[in-house]
């Protein structure tokens, strides 16, 4: 039986001609390595790397802490970025782009429950990964197909106006932090 390291490290494959790897530490102390091409998909991370002056020589010695993203989401994000690092730029979408088909690999990757998808979107928004944001939103958009307002409320967790009012009333009735 292999012994699991104390802090799991997600390894990624990198092409020989571009061996520059960066280390990222998630909020729950999982360590991930990610290639230069992949990390460029995240505007936030790439700006950080550029501002910190990380180079091929010192990249692995200076892990980048990302406080707002947990290990589970970071793993998905790293997988996604590695998968799409050599993608050509996609054309600007117009409105109502249902004809765009989400690739099967990405659909599988994003077949997660709603809570996870919600958290992943927050992480993606923070890391500013446009493509992953597009794909996550596409998955959420697809959920609305053939759904009535009542079903949409359930699927998207939207409270009714009455529930909203009740929530506001109870919030205003409850004593503040000072008691």
């Amino acid at each position: 039986m292999s012994v699991e390291p104390e802090v799991p490290i997600v390894q990624v494959e990198e092409v020989r001609e571009n061996p520059v790897l960066y280390k990222i530490i998630s909020s729950d102390n999982h360590v991930f390595t990610i290639s230069e091409h992949a990390v460029k998909l995240s505007k936030t991370l790439w700006d950080l790397i550029t501002n910190l002056g990380l180079t091929a020589e010192n990249a692995l010695d200076n892990p980048i802490p990302v406080e707002n993203v947990n290990g589970k989401n970071m793993e998905t994000i790293v997988q996604f970025c590695e998968r799409h690092k050599y993608d050509e730029e996609e054309p600007e979408y117009t409105n109502y782009i249902r004809e765009f088909v989400l690739p099967e690999w990405d659909r599988q990757l994003l077949s997660i429950d709603n809570e996870e998808l919600f958290q992943l979107i927050l992480a993606t928004n923070y890391l500013d990964i446009q493509k992953l944001m597009d794909y996550c939103c596409r998955v959420i958009g697809d959920m609305a197909k053939d759904k009535t307002p009542e079903e949409l409320r359930i699927i998207y967790g939207i409270p009714t106006d009455a529930e909203d009012d009740a929530l506001e009333r109870s919030a205003s009735d409850s004593p503040g932090p000072s008691g």
Binding site: L122, Y156, G157
Partner: peptide, 10 residues
């Protein structure tokens, strides 16, 4: 569906 908080998305 319970945990999707659509309105709290950015």
């Amino acid at each position: 569906f319970r945990k999707m908080q659509f309105l709290k998305l950015p």
